[in-house]
């Protein structure tokens, strides 16, 4: 207890000396400022700097999004302009294989070339092609038939033709590959 009183008295005596106490306060203040600067200001400044880069990224992203929206607006106008005409594409490249559509198309083409369709069979090998085997008869124009098949709306590729000339009517066996675009 006595030693403690002696130590406190020593402190009081030193601090009662104004010049010493001012020096102590100045040193204390400087140390506090340095400590605050190191432990407080530095992390705060790091956060501030990282926020600036986030802010810049956000701003750039927003500008890109606005640009994208402008592009989408133009695309929307174009798509609306095309409107229901888009369905015309389906006639050229159907989304799915429907035998009756092919049957109608083929019958029309054969009829125009002077032939009649006797039989037709389909095999849907994969998502992109339909194979047709056809038997046709009549006294028509083979060259005209072939060019009509290749110029038709649907994308046809004639694989083989077997043509026999008859006295009353000719007979034809054909294999045709037609392209489709099935939705996966």
């Amino acid at each position: 207890m006595k030693k403690t009183d002696e130590f406190l008295n020593l402190i009081r005596r030193i601090l009662s000396n104004e010049s010493i106490s001012i020096k102590i306060y100045i040193v204390w203040g400087l140390v506090t400022l340095l400590m605050f600067g190191f432990f407080g200001f530095l992390p705060a400044s790091k956060i501030f700097l990282s926020n600036i880069s986030i802010l810049d990224d956000l701003y750039q992203n927003n500008l890109n999004l606005e640009k994208k929206i402008d592009e989408l607006k133009v695309a929307k106008e174009r798509v609306e302009l095309v409107g229901e005409d888009v369905n015309i594409l389906d006639k050229f490249l159907p989304d799915e294989f429907q035998a009756q559509n092919y049957l109608v198309d083929m019958s029309v083409i054969f009829g125009q070339s002077g032939y009649s369709l006797d039989s037709i069979s389909f095999t849907n090998k994969d998502a992109h092609e339909v194979n047709m085997s056809l038997r046709i008869s009549g006294k028509g124009n083979l060259k005209d038939l072939v060019s009509k098949l290749e110029e038709s709306k649907k994308l046809n590729e004639i694989q083989s033709i077997r043509y026999s000339v008859g006295s009353r009517e000719d007979s034809l066996n054909m294999t045709i590959k037609s392209f489709i675009m099935e939705n996966k």
Binding site: V82, F92, S147, E157, I158, F179, M181
Partner: peptide
């Protein structure tokens, strides 16, 4: 995208098919 895909595929098939006429 549907229009674009279909047009591209159509052109691809058109250029890859073999004609016999």
């Amino acid at each position: 995208k549907r229009i674009s895909d279909k047009t591209i595929t159509y052109k691809k098939f058109l250029s890859s098919r073999f004609l016999i006429s």
